[in-house]
Amino acid sequence: MDFSRLSEALASKSYAKIAEICDDLMLQVAAEGVAFQDEWPYAVHLLGHIYDDDINSARFLWKSIPAAIKESQPEVVAAWKVGQKLWMRDYRGVYEAIRGFDWSQETQNVVAAFSELYTKKMFQLLQSAYSTISVQDTALFLGMSEDHATNYVLQQGWFEDPASQMLNVKKQPIAAEQKLDPGKLQRLTEYVFHLEH
């Protein structure tokens, strides 16, 4: 089985391509009728879907993995544990699942990249949802110690009120709305009308 495209994606840190490459390879191998269960990189495949924030595809892949593989490859189970925590929106649990396993050399970089991406996503979520938030909650969402989380958000321009242990969120500037030129709207309307008739 030729995993060269997958190896290239991993080497170039193109983690967003992993799931698609694995899906394509799996379909190709299945179409050829080749048995591939023992040598398939299930952990990498699962992590590819998780990295892409495609938990549904990760769930379906997990369900299709033979029980013997799940029992013999603890890294596959560890990858799915991250997916489960995401599915359940257990923010702290995602980080615990990531840190709770000694990942192989092949998956370490994918997991580290996902962890960084997930932290940024959680930070953006906090930034859009809160005007003030406790240090404890911030640490929970970012999967960090309270000191580390405080330092992280202070570097992003947030402010801390030490007396109340609350963080004041620095909101992103709202982009000005682009005004639509009435002439463009008229041309678009005429074009659509022309297509319909």
Results as ranks from 00 to 15, higher is better:
Asp2Gln: 03
Phe3Pro: 04
Arg5Phe: 10
Ser7Cys: 13
Ser7Trp: 06
Glu8Phe: 12
Ala9Gln: 02
Leu10Arg: 05
Leu10Gly: 10
Ser12Asn: 09
Ser12Thr: 07
Ser14Pro: 11
Tyr15Phe: 13
Ala16Tyr: 12
Lys17Glu: 11
Glu20Asp: 12
Glu20His: 14
Cys22Ile: 03
Asp24Cys: 11
Asp24Ser: 14
Leu25Tyr: 00
Leu25Met: 01
Leu27His: 06
Gln28Gly: 07
Gln28Pro: 03
Gln28Ala: 07
Ala30Ile: 09
Glu32Gly: 10
Glu32Trp: 09
Val34Tyr: 13
Glu39Ser: 13
Trp40Pro: 05
Ala43Thr: 02
Ala43Pro: 08
Ala43His: 03
Ala43Gly: 08
Leu46Trp: 04
Leu47Tyr: 07
Gly48Thr: 09
His49Glu: 06
Tyr51Trp: 05
Asp52Gly: 13
Asp53Thr: 09
Ile55Arg: 10
Asn56Arg: 13
Arg59Cys: 15
Arg59Phe: 12
Arg59Asn: 14
Trp62Asp: 05
Ile69Gln: 00
Lys70Gln: 03
Ser72Gly: 09
Gln73Asn: 02
Pro74Trp: 00
Pro74Asp: 03
Glu75Gln: 00
Ala78Val: 00
Gly83Leu: 02
Gly83Ala: 06
Leu86Ala: 02
Arg89Met: 04
Arg89Ser: 04
Arg92Tyr: 12
Ile98His: 00
Gly100Cys: 01
Asp102Asn: 12
Asp102Pro: 11
Gln105Cys: 14
Thr107Pro: 06
Thr107Tyr: 03
Gln108Thr: 08
Asn109Leu: 15
Leu117Met: 07
Leu117Glu: 04
Tyr118Gly: 02
Thr119Glu: 04
Lys120Asn: 15
Lys121Asp: 06
Gln127Ile: 13
Ala129His: 08
Tyr130Ile: 04
Ile133Asn: 00
Gln136Asn: 11
Thr138His: 05
Leu140Glu: 10
Gly143Arg: 03
Gly143Lys: 06
Met144Asn: 03
Glu146Arg: 08
Glu146Leu: 09
Asp147Lys: 14
Ala149Thr: 10
Thr150Glu: 13
Leu154His: 06
Leu154Phe: 06
Gln155Cys: 14
Gln156His: 06
Gly157His: 04
Trp158Leu: 12
Phe159Gln: 09
Phe159Leu: 15
Pro162His: 01
Ala163Tyr: 08
Met166Ala: 15
Met166Ser: 14
Met166His: 13
Leu167Ala: 04
Lys170Met: 02
Lys171Ser: 08
Gln172Thr: 09
Ala176Met: 12
Glu177Phe: 15
Glu177Asn: 15
Lys179Ile: 08
Lys179Met: 08
Leu180Pro: 15
Leu180Asn: 13
Pro182Trp: 01
Lys184Ile: 10
Arg187Val: 11
Tyr191Thr: 10
Tyr191Gln: 07
Leu195Lys: 06
Glu196Ala: 03
